[in-house]
Amino acid sequence: MTLAELVCPAGTPAALRTAVDAGADTVYCGFRNATNARNFPGLNFSTDELATAVAYAHAKGSKVLLALNTYPPAGQVDLWREAADTGARIGVDAFIVADMGVARYIATKYPEIRLHLSVQAAASSPEAIRYYCESFGVKRVVLPRILTIPEIRRIAQEIPCEIETFIFGNHGLMVEGRCSLTNYVTGLSTNMDGVCSPAADVEYRREGDGAVSSCLSGYVIDRFGPDEMAGYPTICKGRYQAPHRPEGYYAFEEPVSLNLARLLPELIDAGVHAFKIEGRQRSKSYVRNVVSAFRNAVDDIRAGREANIAGLLQLTEGGRETQGAFETKKWR
């Protein structure tokens, strides 16, 4: 078992090469369609691009995981099956899946290719994880960002597969794979169309005092004052007025990024096999900086040295970072 495999995001072929060159053990990416949960305009890979990217990664000793981590609408499974067939033909090292039907198709047709269970499956108990392992031969679970390190340690002792945890990036805490907030406003599903807050539905309105309102399908979901840091235009990170909070407050989540740099040794000790960096929608610059920083940190830990990660705050949402539930469930 590899110690602390670094799993890094790639939204474009250039980002994938950047991640590999920066020291990624593994890169995850997706096709330009609804089969993955970062279905944003201008992002992702064509079939030819993925084939070239896989060859590049393999030549440099890195693995490529293909995210097929959305849920096909009933009766519309062909797109996901074709994506799995293409990924298998190209030679990806594993599929990241959430839907049981997609998992079953791959497990049956391509039993030699590893299956990883996406965070979108929201499997957070030993019973749920064991079900996926026993039914579909899942080799790794990506845990939701709602567990403390002691809880992860207990789960690791009770499941027959590897554990991957997020260590940096978006701090999404809704029940992943079940969130329908975007659907209510835009009519598009995060979980089936692969896009939360589609860019076509987002508008930023500049106001006379220098403030900016972020709007989704015409609804104002936050307003940033002239000197206030901004966040993503998602409903879960919107600021709302309520009778008990007329000044407006973050009712669900706050614009803040996860950063577990200081907890890496504890996570390894708890039995975490792989560390995931979020951000397929981010730039090459983000990929280069974050992957390099965590590559050095993991190498330091492997060598018995104390890891020192600084300088990532400027890349965080809202200019703030948190250890979230990994440190304590009282983080808010």
Partner: peptide
């Protein structure tokens, strides 16, 4: 990073957000 300079308010976007995101990703 485009998102980071947006968060810090050093970058302002107006109009068709999808067009801006597409251009950002294409150039990146």
């Amino acid at each position: 990073d485009g998102d980071a300079v947006f968060f810090s308010r050093d970058l302002i976007i107006e109009g068709n957000t999808e067009a801006v995101v597409s251009l950002r990703n294409a150039l990146d």
